[in-house]
Computed example of a mutant assay.
Amino acid sequence: MKPTRYIAVASALALLAGPAAAQDSEYSWQPDRPINIIVPWSAGGSTDQVTRVVAPILEEALGTEIVVVNQSGASGSTGTKAALDAPRDGYTWTANAIANNATYSVTGLIEDTSIEDYRIYLHVANVPLVSVNSNTDYQDFPSLLEAMKTGSVTVGTAGVNSSGGMALAALRHGTEDELTGARAITYDGGNPAVIAAASGEVDATTQLAVEQTEMIRADRLRALTVLSDVPLEVEGIEPVPPITEFLPDFEVAKDYFGIFIPKGAPQEVYDTVDQVWQDHIMNAEELKTYANDRGAIFDPSYGEDALDLAMPVVISEACARVERGEAVVDPSEIGIDCGSE
């Protein structure tokens, strides 16, 4: 029988080893220090939520600490640029909706960048909800739509490049710019925008379902429609009717989210994360639970397969910027063909 002192020392050493003890020798890259994932939005929003679900899975697989860093500002471009400007050694990643990373240069927020700057790792697709403060008189989407056309409705979003901002812009486009009474109020992330709607600071929000579900369950928000072609069904919430029920010609594309590693690092970094994604993310129960509970779509992929899946939303968002007069760079300059939308 081993002495008690020996057991105590061995246990302490195991604890000090931390995630590295779980490192799998089959992976070609063995990170020797923490990896930072820059979330370019405030804490509690959609990107932050799902990244904090994925990070522990990656941490265990890679055997090193994964640090989630919130660096918000300028519709997510501040933190994204920080990731692009960091040393290309594989230790600084970023997280976002892929349409953002693909179109920052179109709107002039980050010069000379495109989705080709990253190796892509997607995990869920999100859907925006149009919801109102529960104390408002809007009981259904047609009544809110009418008020947006003829009255005055304040709408909380995380900025023009956020999912909520793009959803509001899509609504304007889908109604032929008739929503003259809808006034966007910008917050420093999806979570603050949703809280503003729940508190009555603004009338409505168009942020993502994953950011709103808890407030809807608590009867602080009333969900009126989901920007999808099928109803949103989440436990504890009445089914939310699709936008196509009210605007049949409304164009819908899955809003994919993921983690992005800037290119230029050693190839073994990407080879290893590819394998980790395949081994640990593609069937991650924690991620499935998150998606089911919050109203997201579990749909992991990586590499070229991920880019193929996400191109419809990338094209849709880039070309919508052109149609709305928000583009300062033609999408064709970064390889996005609006003729194929």
Score class of each variant (00 low, 15 high):
G159H: 02
M148F: 14
G164W: 11
D219P: 00
D219N: 13
N135V: 03
L221P: 05
E233L: 01
V130Y: 06
L227M: 14
L224K: 03
L145G: 02
D219S: 13
T206E: 05
E178C: 00
G190R: 09
D137R: 15
I195T: 15
Q212T: 09
L224N: 08
E176V: 00
V210C: 03
A197P: 08
L208N: 11
S134P: 01
E178D: 10
E176Q: 11
S131W: 06
E214D: 15
G165P: 03
V202N: 05
P128F: 09
L232H: 04
L168M: 13
E233W: 00
V234G: 01
K149C: 01
R217T: 03
A125L: 07
L224Y: 04
A182C: 12
M215T: 04
V202D: 07
P192H: 12
E211T: 10
E201W: 01
G189T: 12
A182M: 12
T157K: 04
T157C: 02
D177E: 14
T175A: 10
T180W: 02
R220G: 13
R172T: 00
G164R: 08
P192N: 11
I195G: 00
I185C: 03
L168P: 09
D188T: 14
I185H: 13
V160P: 00
H173N: 08
D203R: 02
Q212C: 10
G159K: 03
G174D: 02
R220C: 00
I216R: 07
T154W: 07
A196R: 08
Y187F: 15
A198Y: 01
A218H: 02
Y138Q: 01
V202F: 09
L221V: 05
V194P: 12
V160S: 10
G164S: 02
A184I: 08
S152N: 14
D140E: 13
I185N: 10
N191A: 15
G156P: 05
D177H: 14
S163M: 08
D140C: 02
E201R: 08
L221C: 02
L221E: 04
T154L: 09
V210S: 12
T205I: 05
I216K: 05
R220L: 12
T150M: 00
V127Y: 11
N126D: 13
M215G: 00
M148Y: 14
G189P: 13
D203W: 02
L221Y: 04
M148E: 13
V130R: 04
T157L: 02
A169R: 12
S228R: 13
V234K: 03
T154Q: 13
L168C: 08
I216F: 11
D219K: 09
S228N: 15
A169G: 12
L179T: 09
N126Y: 01
T150Y: 07
R183A: 12
D203S: 09
R220V: 00
P142V: 05
Y138H: 04
S199G: 01
V127L: 10
T175N: 12
G174Q: 07
